[in-house]
C-alpha cells in the first residue's frame, strides 16, 4: 500500500511530477482509484459513525436522545440548539469569541517562542545544548495535575484569575515545550548545506533563521498551529480553574455546564452545542491542511 502512494500519476494537490503513462496503465490506474475511493469512503463512514450519531442526536427532542438512541430520528427539532444557546446569561457566541481570542493568541505565542527556541537547539552550537534539550523534554513529562495548583496559586495571587493572561502568557514563553521538540525534529530534517551556504555569504543566525529555516519549516509551523488551536479549543481544566465568571467562559466550560452529572439532563443540548463547537475546528483544519500540503514545492535544494 505504501509504495503505491508514489506511483499514482495525476497529482491533484501535491506538487506535480512529469510522467507519461501508457493507456493500459491508465485504465489500471482508474480501477485502482475507484477501489481506493471505495475503501476510503467505507473506512470514513466507520470512523465517523459516532459523529454522525452525535449530529443526528442534536436534532432529537432532548428526552429521546438517550432513551431512543437509533440513528434514524423519529422526530426532528431545534429545541436543543435553542436551550443550549445561553449559558450563564451569555449567548454561545460570546464563548466562541473568548475561545477564539485565546486560541489565536496561543497560536501566535507558540509559533514565535517555540520556533526561536527550536532553531537554537537544532542549529546553533553552544555549551550544554544537550542539557537544555533534555530540560525541554523533562518539562513535558510531569503530569499537569502535579503543577496546576502551584501555577494557580501564582496567577491567583497576581490577581489574574478571570483574565486570559494565565492561559496565553505561558504560550509566549514556550511552555508548550512539546512543540519545541516537534520543530527541532523538523529543522534537523533540513539539509545543513542550506544554512551553511548562507552563513558563508555572511548571514548571521537571525538571517539564517528568518530567511532559510523558517520558510522551510512551514509544515512544522502549520502543524503547531493546528495542534495549538485544537488543544486550546478543547482544553478544559486550565480554563475551568482560571475562568470562573460566565462572561469569560470558553466553549469547553460552557459545554461542561450543559451536563449535570447527577441527573443526566441536557444530553441533547450537549450534543447540539458539541456539534456547533466542532465547526470552527473543522474550518480551521480544512484551511490549515491546504497550506500544509502546498508549503514545500517551491523550496528545497537549489
Amino acid at each position: 500500500m505504501s509504495t503505491s502512494t508514489l506511483d499514482s500519476p495525476p497529482v491533484v494537490d501535491g506538487p506535480t511530477r512529469p510522467r507519461g503513462p501508457s493507456r493500459s496503465m491508465r485504465r489500471a490506474k482508474v480501477r485502482g482509484a475507484i477501489l481506493r475511493h471505495g475503501g476510503l469512503i467505507l473506512f470514513g463512514l466507520f470512523m465517523l459513525y459516532p459523529l454522525i450519531w452525535m449530529a443526528v442526536s442534536a436534532f432529537k427532542p432532548s428526552h429521546l436522545v438517550l432513551t431512543d438512541p437509533s440513528i434514524i430520528p423519529t422526530e426532528l427539532t431545534l429545541e436543543n440548539f435553542v436551550n443550549g444557546w445561553v449559558v450563564g446569561g451569555f449567548p454561545f457566541w460570546v464563548f466562541f469569541g473568548n475561545s477564539l481570542v485565546i486560541a489565536i493568541s496561543a497560536i501566535l505565542g507558540n509559533l514565535i517562542s517555540c520556533s526561536l527556541t527550536a532553531y537554537a537547539l537544532a542549529r546553533l552550537e553552544f555549551r550544554a545544548r544537550n542539557v537544555y534539550f533534555a530540560i525541554v523534554l523533562v518539562t513535558v513529562m510531569l503530569p499537569m495535575h502535579a503543577v496546576v495548583i502551584p501555577q494557580y496559586i501564582v496567577f491567583s495571587n497576581l490577581g489574574l484569575v478571570n483574565t486570559f493572561i494565565p492561559l496565553i502568557l505561558p504560550k509566549f514563553l514556550a511552555t508548550d515545550a512539546f512543540f519545541i521538540f516537534l520543530m527541532v525534529q523538523f529543522i534537523r530534517g533540513i539539509p545543513r548545506q542550506l544554512d551553511e551556504a548562507a552563513s558563508i555569504d555572511g548571514a548571521g543566525p537571525f538571517r539564517v533563521f528568518w530567511s532559510i529555516i523558517l520558510p522551510l519549516m512551514k509544515p512544522a509551523l502549520i502543524t503547531t498551529a493546528i495542534f495549538t488551536f485544537i488543544w486550546t479549543w478543547n482544553d478544559f481544566f486550565g480554563q475551568l480553574i482560571y475562568l470562573t465568571d460566565s462572561s469569560v467562559f470558553t466553549v469547553p466550560i460552557a459545554l461542561n455546564a450543559l451536563v449535570d452529572s447527577e441527573s443526566n439532563q441536557g444530553t441533547g443540548t450537549l450534543m447540539a452545542m458539541s456539534v456547533l463547537s466542532l465547526i470552527p475546528l473543522l474550518l480551521f483544519f480544512a484551511f490549515a491542511q491546504k497550506h500544509l500540503i502546498r508549503g514545500i514545492a517551491t523550496t528545497g535544494l537549489k
Partner: peptide, 22 residues
C-alpha cells in the same frame, strides 16, 4: 550568546512558569 537570545522566551518561561511549580 545568539543561542541564549533565541531561547530567551523559553528560558524566562522555564524559570517563571515551569520550573517553580515543578
Amino acid at each position: 550568546l545568539a543561542a541564549h537570545a533565541f531561547m530567551s522566551p523559553w528560558l524566562i518561561g522555564l524559570v517563571l512558569v515551569t520550573a517553580a511549580p515543578m
